[in-house]
Amino acid sequence: TDKDQPINITAEQATIDDIKGIAIYEGNVVVTQGTIRIEADKVTLTYTKKQTLDKVILDGNPARFKQRPDNSTEDLNAKAEKMEYFATENRLQLTQNAEVWQGKDTFTGQRITYDTERGIIKANQKVQVTIQPRQQSPSKAPAN
């Protein structure tokens, strides 16, 4: 799964503070891990005492997130002006005109959280979902 893949980050500028366990990347930041690809203007990673990844804060105009969930044929995309990824809980939280879409189905709401491991998206306050009909498979007309 994506979690065990190495993370690599490219950015125009990076400031890393090992003592406090914080790393800030700014300017066209691109983060990739397995099928996950994140683009943002500013990415702030914080690590726990044991040097494991604790939280990632992404700011962008908007920040973008894309992942190909396991055994799914389409990428899952998300965008929002502010995203927070809680690594330990595998939870990505999007706020301020957040939008998630997969194929042509779209999912919007004031606040959307995405469980990257179990592939569950939760949204609240003024949720709007648009679901395209499946390709018009010839309806199984009763053979008469």
Binding site: P69, S72, L76, V100, Q102, F107, G109, G119, I120, I121, K122, A123, N124, Q125, K126, V127, Q128, V129, T130, I131
Partner: peptide, 10 residues
């Protein structure tokens, strides 16, 4: 679909 809260099990 419009709603106050929604959950999508992908």
């Amino acid at each position: 679909l419009y709603a106050d809260d929604g959950e999508m099990y992908e």
